[in-house]
C-alpha cells in the first residue's frame, strides 16, 4: 500500500495542507453477526477528492455514517479534525445521504431557506446559481420532482455549504450518464478548495477523472489506498479496471468454496 503523494493547493495555508482531516483507527462496527466494518485504518488529508469504492455491502455507507455521527463505532476510533463525530463536527461536515429525506410538500425554495437557517456556512447565492445551472425551479414542490432531479436538488443544497468535509454517499447512482457528468462538474466547481470530498460509489469509471485518491473497501476493510495517478502508473490500468480485477478475483475464490 503506497502512501498517496501529498500535493497541495496553491494558496492553501501550510498547516491546513498537512492536516489530517479524517483519521480512523482500528474502526469496527457490527450489526449483530455482521461485521460491517472490520478494523478500518484510514487517514485523509485536507484538500483532496477521495473515492470510497467497494462492491455492495462492503461498508461504504457505514463508514460515512460513523464519520458524521449517525452511527457509533462498536470499537476503535474515528476522528474528524481531531474530534469525535458529534455536535462540534456537524458544522464542518456537509452530508449527502444515499436517500432523500425531505417532506414532499416542501418547495425547493423552502429547502434553501431551511439550510440557510441551519448552517452558518450556507451560501445562498451559490445555491441560486446552482439551481439555475441544474435547471431547478425554486417554486417547484419536491413531490413533483423526478428521482434524478431530487438528487440534483440534494446535491445543490450540500455543495452550497463551505464545509471542511463533504461526505457524498452515492451522489450519481440514480441519474443518467449525461446528468452524472453535470453532477461531477458541479462538485468540482463548487467544493471548498481547502475541504476534502469523500465520494462513495461503485460507478468508478464515471468518477475516476475527478479523484485524487481511491480507497478500496472490501468486507469492511481497506484493501487499497493510493493516488489515482499512482495506480495508473504502477498498474498501467484505470482504477475501474483494477477494481474489476481485484473484486472479480475475489468472487472466483469464493466460488471455489461454495458450490454455485
Amino acid at each position: 500500500m503506497t502512501a498517496p503523494r501529498r500535493r497541495s493547493w496553491p494558496g492553501a495555508r501550510e498547516e491546513e495542507r498537512m492536516s489530517e482531516l479524517v483519521k480512523c483507527t482500528a474502526l469496527r462496527r457490527d450489526f449483530g453477526p455482521v461485521k460491517a466494518l472490520d478494523g478500518v485504518d484510514l487517514t485523509l488529508d485536507a484538500g483532496r477528492i477521495v473515492g470510497l469504492l467497494g462492491p455492495n455491502g462492503s461498508g461504504k455507507t457505514t463508514l460515512i455514517k460513523i464519520l458524521n455521527g449517525l452511527l457509533q463505532p462498536s470499537s476503535g476510533e474515528a476522528l474528524v479534525n481531531g474530534c469525535r463525530p458529534g455536535p462540534a463536527t456537524k458544522s464542518l461536515i456537509s452530508y449527502l445521504p444515499d436517500r432523500g429525506y425531505f417532506p414532499d410538500w416542501m418547495r425547493v425554495s423552502d429547502m434553501i431557506d431551511m439550510f440557510a437557517d441551519f448552517y452558518i456556512d450556507f451560501d445562498r447565492r451559490k445555491a441560486e446559481d446552482m439551481c439555475r445551472s441544474l435547471e431547478l425551479e425554486p417554486g417547484q414542490r419536491i413531490k413533483s420532482l423526478s428521482k434524478g432531479t431530487k438528487e440534483k436538488m440534494q446535491l445543490m443544497l450540500v455543495m452550497s455549504r463551505q464545509a471542511r468535509l463533504y461526505l457524498l454517499d452515492e451522489p450519481i447512482a440514480g441519474v443518467d450518464p449525461a446528468a452524472r457528468d453535470f453532477i461531477l462538474h458541479t462538485i468540482l466547481t463548487n467544493y471548498n478548495e481547502d475541504g476534502t470530498v469523500l465520494i462513495s460509489t461503485h460507478l468508478i469509471s464515471d468518477v475516476e477523472q475527478v479523484l485524487d485518491e481511491a480507497v478500496f473497501l472490501q468486507k469492511g476493510r481497506v484493501v487499497l489506498h493510493e493516488s489515482v495517478d499512482s495506480i495508473r502508473e504502477r498498474t498501467g490500468e484505470s482504477v475501474d479496471a483494477l477494481f474489476r480485477e481485484m473484486f472479480r478475483a475475489q468472487a472466483w475464490k469464493e466460488g471455489e468454496n461454495h458450490a454455485w
Binding site: R7, W9, P10, G47, R48, I49, D181, L184, H185, L188, T189, E193, Q209, V210, L211, D212, V228, D229
Partner: peptide, 18 residues
C-alpha cells in the same frame, strides 16, 4: 487558470496543477 482548465477537462484540480 488551473481551475478553469480543470473544469473544462472535468478533472480534479490537483491533477491539472501537476
Amino acid at each position: 487558470t488551473v481551475r478553469e482548465l480543470a473544469a473544462e477537462a472535468g478533472v480534479n484540480p490537483n491533477t491539472m496543477q501537476r
